[in-house]
Design a protein around this nucleic acid. Structure first.
Length: 368
DNA sequence: AACTCGGGGCT
DNA sequence: AGCCCAGAGTT
């Protein structure tokens, strides 16, 4: 059947009925508070629902409204974001919170132009927030929606290619139910997330099946076309986990030039263990770095005990970290460094790479 | 238009 | 071991 004229209302109704029956009960679906919708949409950028839920809960407990977020120290915001990834989202989130307080009286703007002017808000997020929180008639287009619409309309090729993305946006605009834009947008996204999945879509359970041209043409496996990514590169780091008698360790600050401009980004510019990029042999190169950074006296007698190697991926980089425990009577110091309990890194913003290293250092039965 | 940014869960 | 996700900002 064609998705035009008389059949469009039928299509919408079918999908909305499906949604009302299959709608997942998600925390951000229990509120109409624009602030909460906003937080959820930022967290959900390129991040799965299951990963977001615990962060959403604790973040909102700590920052229940936009003023609480605006007035917090940035480090506190990053701490609550720690482990979720894409940390510029958290920085932009707080900058936007401050703008909302200063320029919009503490209320998330209702107007598309004002929303787009906020840092971290692009076309997708603006449409999502304004439609869900304020019922503004704006159609969302994200990875899920693009896949659903590309299949329904049998649009071949890479959906992220500029011209094709515009065409998909037009398709989304045309299908939008202006009477219930928030629910409609969530319906299409939900369909993409649970039925019209990238691989092995469950067409037998799909409410859009009879309108789906990809299904009619047997193209559900080739639409959408996969996007090509750059080849991953291998990287080797060496990191030092100092421990003193009290079980405390030492972290160095973000953007620490002495820690190496090429290493800090791999820790997402968050607090990290002292680390170097290894050229040949991890242990002597780390030892040389530690001597430069912390002085030879503190390390003269200290041994470097190898821990279980840690693996971590940052976009296209596959990182292997040779971590060493360095037992010292007193932690050394360097500019801006901090000491913290090894078993409790949650007091500082750290990336998951740092967490993995800490876990390797506290895990039972490690080598050495 | 091409890159970069995190991390994990599922096939 | 891939693959991709409720994308946005920068170059």
């Amino acid at each position: 059947m064609k998705l035009r004229g008389q059949d469009l209302p039928r299509f919408r109704r079918k999908l909305q009925e499906w949604f009302s029956g299959q709608r997942r009960d998600l925390p951000w679906r229990r509120t109409k508070d624009p602030y909460r919708i906003w937080i959820s949409e930022i967290m959900l950028q390129q991040t799965r629902v299951a990963a977001v839920i615990p962060y959403y809960e604790s973040f909102l407990e700590r920052f229940p409204d936009v003023r609480a977020l605006a007035s917090a120290p940035q480090e506190e915001v990053l701490r609550l974001w720690s482990g979720l990834g894409y940390y510029t989202r958290a920085r932009n989130l707080q900058r936007a919170a401050r703008e909302i307080v200063e320029r919009h009286g503490g209320e998330f703007p209702r107007n598309l132009e004002d929303a787009l002017a906020l840092p971290g808000i692009g076309r997708y997020s603006a449409a999502a927030i304004l439609s869900i929180a304020y019922e503004e008639p704006l159609a969302v287009l994200d990875g899920n929606v693009a896949r659903v619409l590309a299949r329904i309309e049998a649009i071949r090729g890479d959906p992220r290619e500029s011209a094709r993305w515009k065409r998909l946006q037009q398709a989304a605009d045309a299908l939008l139910d202006g009477r219930a834009p928030g629910a409609w947008n969530q319906t299409v996204m939900e369909l993409g997330a649970t039925v019209c999945t990238p691989r092995a879509p469950v067409c037998l359970l799909c409410p859009a099946a009879k309108w789906c041209r990809a299904r009619q043409l047997g193209l559900t496996d080739v639409i959408p076309e996969k996007r090509c990514k750059r080849k991953p590169i291998q990287l080797l780091l060496a990191a030092a986990v100092f421990t003193d008698r009290n079980g405390r360790t030492l972290l160095v600050p973000p953007r620490d030039a002495t820690a190496g401009e090429e290493v800090s980004p791999l820790f997402s510019r968050m607090w990290q263990f002292p680390a170097v990029h290894v050229r040949r042999d991890a242990k002597p190169e780390l030892r040389r770095y530690l001597a430069e950074e912390f002085g030879t006296a503190a390390l003269k007698t200290a041994e470097l005990e190898a821990l279980e190697p840690v693996r971590h991926g940052v976009t296209f980089r596959a990182i292997t970290i040779s971590a060493f425990r360095v037992r010292v009577p007193r932690l050394p110091r360097s500019a801006g460094s901090r000491s913290i309990e090894l078993g409790n890194l949650t007091k500082l913003p750290v990336s998951n790479l740092t967490r993995k290293i800490a876990r390797a250092a506290t895990a039972p039965g490690r080598p050495g």
